[in-house]
Design a protein around this nucleic acid. Structure first.
Lengths: 177, 177
DNA sequence: CTTTGAATTTGACAAATGTCAAATACTAAT
DNA sequence: ATTAGTATTTGACATTTGTCAAATTCAAAG
């Protein structure tokens, strides 16, 4: 893991704003432009779309994750997704403009972000390939193997959605142990 | 689109190596560590996995794309994917170590890459959500709408694989206009 | 401990897509 | 133009997963 130099840490800390949220609070609602990036110190949350009247959870965030609607944050367009807390959570927020000023004054911060994007990119790529080429049972077993803690913190309806399968199918998979 | 300052362009050009490939040549074979990033000036290629004895194409590259096995390039682990040319192509290659030296001497190059990752991340995210929550017909129609040129340059078997559906299903969708 | 609402499971059936084999169409080289 | 090899389409059927409704289980509040 890349670590910032001391002066960058000082500069960054001056720009972070602590925000607390309770279960079910929204960090972001669709149609709003997301102008902040968040670091999730404690808690859990989900990103979801409303598609044809249904909520589709496509992503979870946990401790130490960077969180935002990346599409909205990067493009400046209104968000098409919602971010909602699954538990009481503590976030540190930074404005997009502030972050970009920090990039100019502290290249090590831009490097930290570049490396974070690399990590997140390959993580998403792996999920993508799995989702497309594994069946429902394999997806669930892989999740159990790689992120067993999710099962204990997230309700099964959200997990089914995250895996791209119906809740009933997930339930049937679980009933076969 | 972000543009480099003049000195960065000069420095970068000194580090790029031109490579030509013919149709069906491999840019990368699985099990090899991918230590280079490529800029595709001209041509087309595909990334694919061998899963259970079947080739699964999960990605295409065209003119102006950055190309590599991101997982292998970033982690330094052996590639699990192959990259193969679909046509005669011209690439510009840069070594990972060389690129990292350029990050240090020219922050604008690191910025260019950071912005490229942002773009690639949200592109992948969009594909991911589509793949998971649209049916085969919608996926094909979306592809026609957003990337009509792909149909003319890539064989249907690869496109079916890319969309995560069987070639027969794609053929039946097409027969209904 | 009981109640109430939410979460999860189960059953019956429908729909979408995959698989395998065969037929047809296309392409490039002779 | 002919041929050989490849790409694409079609048919018949199997399999997986989704949908809807109902039953059951769980969890929090009183």
């Amino acid at each position: 893991m890349y670590t910032l130099d001391a002066s960058a840490i000082v500069a960054l800390e001056k720009c972070l704003v602590k925000k607390e949220f309770f279960k079910n609070d929204f960090l972001l609602s669709e149609a709003k432009v997301c102008k902040e990036l968040y670091f999730l110190e404690k808690g859990a949350l989900r990103g979801f779309y409303n598609i044809d009247g249904k909520e589709v959870t496509h992503w979870f965030g946990f401790e130490s994750d960077f969180v935002t609607s990346f599409h909205s944050f990067i493009t400046g367009e209104p968000s098409v997704e919602n971010i909602q807390m699954l538990e009481y959570s503590i976030c540190w927020a930074i404005e997009k403009e502030t972050l970009e000023q920090l990039y100019n004054s502290h290249p090590s911060i831009e490097r930290l972000v570049r490396i974070a994007y690399e990590k997140y990119y390959i993580r998403l790529e792996e999920r993508y390939v799995n989702a497309q080429f594994k069946n429902a049972t394999q997806l669930y077993e892989d999740l159990l193997a790689s992120n067993p803690h999710i099962i204990n913190r997230v309700s099964l309806g959200y997990i089914a959605s995250y895996l791209g399968i119906s809740q009933e199918t997930l339930s049937r998979i679980r009933s076969k142990h």
